[in-house]
Computed example of a mutant assay.
Amino acid sequence: MNYRKLGKSGFNVSEISLGTWQVGGGWGEPFNEKKAEEIIHAAIDAGVNFIDTADVYSDGQSEAAVAKVVKSRSEEVFLATKCGRQIQPHTAEGYTPERLISYVEESLQNMKLETLDLVQLHCPPTEVYSRPEIFGAFEKLKEQGKIRNLGVSVELVDEALMAMKYPNVTTVQVIFNMFRLKPTEQLFAAAKENNIGLIARVPLASGLLSGKMSSNTTFNPEDHRAFNRHGEAFDKGETFSGVDYEQGLAAVEELKKLFPAEPSLAAWALRWVLMFPEISTVIPGASRPEQVRSNIQAAELPALSAAQMEGVKAIYDQYLRPAVHQAW
């Protein structure tokens, strides 16, 4: 495993880490503590030292499972969680310092910890980024020793740029994959200038970039890939990166022509993300331990060629740019 600096947090984190949305619900299967623990152990066994979760993943059960496993291990593992999505309706007016502080307190209780390595605002409405009192609340938590760092998980590149204006923001979590190239234009340079750690989420476009889906693929009705394709429940950019499913399948067929069949398109898609030195870590999810090990092997692949990098961009420009580029 290779490690990269997570911005001004000072943490050296595994370049491929673990996201636990799949572990904690939203993908059509109920939370399974035993399976969750197996996945987390497999990640740490392979050198992962950064795990991302959230308080809304199975109502805190994901947080609890992550912390339980980490406490049972001798390795240093950095824990990141998120808060804010409990606010319903999810509006800027619902964001108050008091409410967010209470969520952090709940996460500490769920995880039975005294300090959280990283707390991230969980895709708040754009207006929240213009409210200094929200970001100031986390500075107080830091002074109290309850958190070490503040970050944001964003939907829009513009939101990331707004967040970087606050000096206590150390990380930005953003959707970045072969279907979402906009972050390379302004965000990467700004992150480097401000020493912000960039966390690449949804790196496989909700599985589209696995190369295993087709027009006949079906999804559990409780899987967001079935119920949120048009943003019915939350931002549609979270589901298939906002790409039309059939258009995404067509782009995938073109991508397959650029890369060897082995080990998998998913592995090459993760390796593509790591070609960008501005990315501190990428956090693919997993629904079983074998997926964790497969994801991590992507870091061992050779660097992509200039022709492959240019090919990915050309496919994006042809199939995806008109629909997604300015939307996020």
Rank of each mutant, 00 (worst) to 15 (best):
A205W: 11
A205I: 04
S206E: 01
L208H: 05
L209W: 12
L209G: 08
S210M: 06
G211Q: 11
K212S: 11
M213F: 15
M213D: 07
M213H: 14
S215N: 09
N216G: 13
N216D: 09
N216E: 14
T217E: 01
T218K: 15
F219R: 07
P221V: 05
E222K: 15
E222L: 14
D223H: 04
H224Q: 08
H224R: 12
R225D: 05
R225N: 10
A226F: 14
H230S: 15
H230L: 15
H230T: 12
G231F: 12
A233S: 13
A233G: 05
F234Q: 07
F234M: 11
D235V: 06
D235S: 11
K236F: 14
K236Q: 12
G237W: 09
E238R: 11
E238I: 14
T239Y: 05
S241D: 00
S241A: 14
V243G: 02
V243M: 00
V243F: 01
D244K: 08
Y245M: 04
Y245T: 01
G248D: 05
L249Y: 00
A250R: 08
A251P: 11
F259K: 12
F259H: 09
P260V: 14
P260T: 15
P260D: 13
E262M: 10
P263R: 11
S264C: 10
S264W: 08
L265W: 14
A266D: 04
W268N: 03
W268K: 11
W268C: 06
W272M: 02
V273L: 00
V273R: 05
V273W: 02
M275K: 08
E278N: 09
I279W: 06
I279T: 08
I279N: 08
I279G: 07
S280W: 14
T281L: 12
T281W: 13
V282N: 13
I283S: 15
I283T: 14
A286W: 00
R288T: 12
P289G: 03
E290T: 14
Q291E: 12
V292F: 11
V292H: 01
R293T: 07
R293N: 10
S294C: 05
Q297M: 02
Q297R: 00
Q297L: 03
A299K: 00
E300D: 09
E300H: 00
E300I: 00
L301C: 04
P302K: 08
L304I: 11
A307E: 14
